[in-house]
Design a protein around this nucleic acid. Structure first.
Lengths: 341, 341
DNA sequence: GTGAAAGCGCTAACAC
DNA sequence: GTGTTAGCGCTTTCAC
């Protein structure tokens, strides 16, 4: 890796400036020099140093991405979409899986700053004073994707979680259900998870249903927690007729718990998920789910961040709300009137 | 982001060297200077430039990772494990999802080189002359993870795919099966997929079973292709009693096809997967599968690459073979003697 | 059109 | 123990 721009210049018999010009596709280079430089680059197998270039340009084409869980169907799909769009815009992704570890998140945010990334995308909704202070003072364009930013002044690309949850309940009610259980995400922070929960409650209230607190439980959005919460739910003497899980992964965990206990889903109990990730189509019965526009979310996130990077002054709408959509599959049935339960 | 080492030095009333020494935790700094520098760093909110440091040190702490599909259960889990280990060793991950696009892979490999990454991990088994030439000439430590490298001189962290497939067949035979179908990965390249396939054939032959070519099909390791291949299999007049899929994702696709056609799995037809990824435990019936040590594979990959980076001269064993293990779940039943089929 | 030279922010001889 | 200074490999005025 010893060959540098100077070597190319010597080989081609021109100045480093000319080589640089060729490298950057500028005009004001004669056909003759262009040819000689290209030949020298080829012969020397020259690969320009992005590091040196970044130092000079004060721009790295790097975007740092913080994912809570790479193995989640939801996040890996957003990430995949972000990656696709990033490639298109000439960015490279520095990715960090923080596994719910706020300290690791802060550590990585600082590394991103040292790396002088051009922008940061965060998909994690937990927060802390240090984290808040970082996003407020770093000077780096930061965007929250799929979750609401802890500071309302920062831009978030999300769906209207409140409305989506509210409408999910309306759908369930329209099917005749009134005994509705809820398995939510973590409630410790004021973000998407909370809007979802509030939407759920509001939906119930809107239809004159008093929430049964024993049927309201919280997991961590992942498969095992859905299973655990469902298991506890089934130990109750009174059962709901439908379970609303705030993520498809939790819905799958719940589904497996039900199936393994011999319950017929959806005949004996219905189930509805949230996210519309791949797994909803994969399990049997396929999950009816409130779908987020996952890939679009990734694309819009990167494009918006790109805007923020290119026009530092220009204001961007704080919340970019994308549209959700209920997708009916097999896990949710109208409540049959002859149900004993 | 204007504050640099010089500013810190001025503020603390010392030389830049001293600041650099503090930054790098060297000794030969008096307690007094240490204090003053730390105070200045704090007050100025100084964040050292990793870019400038990399340029000087000729080391970036960056590792480029090429993943064929971020949304795959198998690859996202390896990636997650690589990430975890990378954090431990102080590396950052530049990730690229190449979506089976060889041109994109080559493009990214060149970007990795321009970025001066310290090493590269590739999890894609397709190859081309240009790609081969790159890995042979780049001068960057490169390691293949979970797939066999196209050039035998490069190190691969893998299982013994041939043996694993062979033993899978032995297991099936021990259950009484002899009508065994196979859904493999892509056969266009001489890598893991091929060893799996050869192991399968050898297993059959070893037990005096003549392979039925109509029951041998190839997909692309992903869910939809498992479904497609299964669908065609079911259109045949003669059916196998068990299907061996070379990835869990394809097995899930096949499973859904069977289930959706009203087949009872495993009573009417058994199914066995390969990989041991999360999804095998998630579907119902849960998939019996030949399990790869996925997380260990990621960990060993990064640790080996780290070794290669630290000791450039030292030879590393070309193939690091990890152990596989058959995990019995619900999708595979002994062939009942009273089967009509 | 082309080139010389300054400088991006840091580290590491080397001198004191 | 501490500071001066020469680069790391590139881009970009500015002068020719």
């Amino acid at each position: 890796m010893a060959v540098k721009i100077k070597d190319v210049a010597q080989r081609a018999g021109v100045s480093v400036t000319s080589v640089s010009r060729v490298l950057n596709g500028e005009k004001y280079v004669s056909e003759d020099i262009l040819q000689r430089v290209q030949k020298a680059i080829e012969e020397l197998q020259y690969s320009p140093s992005h590091i040196a270039r970044s130092l000079k340009r004060q721009k790295t084409d790097l975007i740092g991405v913080i994912v809570p869980d790479l193995t989640s169907n939801f996040y890996s799909t957003i990430l995949s979409s972000i990656e696709e769009t990033a490639t298109y815009y000439g960015y490279n992704l520095l990715v960090c899986n923080i596994a719910e570890d706020l300290e690791k998140e802060l550590k990585y945010l600082n590394i991103f700053r040292e790396m002088r990334v051009d922008g940061i995308i965060i998909m994690h909704e937990k927060s802390s004073p240090e984290l808040l202070s970082f996003i407020q003072n770093s000077g780096i364009p930061i965007l929250y994707s799929s979750v609401k930013s802890p500071d309302p002044d920062f831009v978030s690309v999300i769906i209207d979680d409140y409305q989506a949850a509210f409408q999910t309940v309306e759908y369930l009610v329209s099917l005749g259900h009134s005994r509705i259980a809820y398995i939510g995400g973590d409630m410790r922070d004021i973000t998407s998870g909370q809007y979802r929960y509030e939407g759920f409650r509001a939906g119930l209230l809107r239809h004159g249903i008093t929430p049964n607190e024993a049927w309201i439980r919280f997991g961590d959005y992942k498969i095992p927690s859905g299973r655990e919460q469902m298991s506890e739910l089934l130990q109750l003497s009174e059962w709901p007729t439908v379970v609303f899980a705030a993520s498809d992964d939790m819905a799958v965990g719940a589904l497996n718990c039900m199936l393994d206990q011999g319950l017929d889903v959806p005949k004996e109990m219905s189930l509805i998920g949230f996210d519309g990730s791949i797994i909803a189509e994969v399990v049997r019965p396929a999950l009816t789910s409130m779908q987020q526009p996952i890939r679009e979310m990734g694309k819009v996130s990167l494009e918006t961040l790109h805007e923020m990077i290119m026009r530092p002054g220009k204001a961007v709408r704080k919340d970019l709300i994308l549209s959700h959509q209920l997708v009916e599959r097999e896990s949710c049935l109208p409540l049959s009137t002859n149900k004993t339960n």
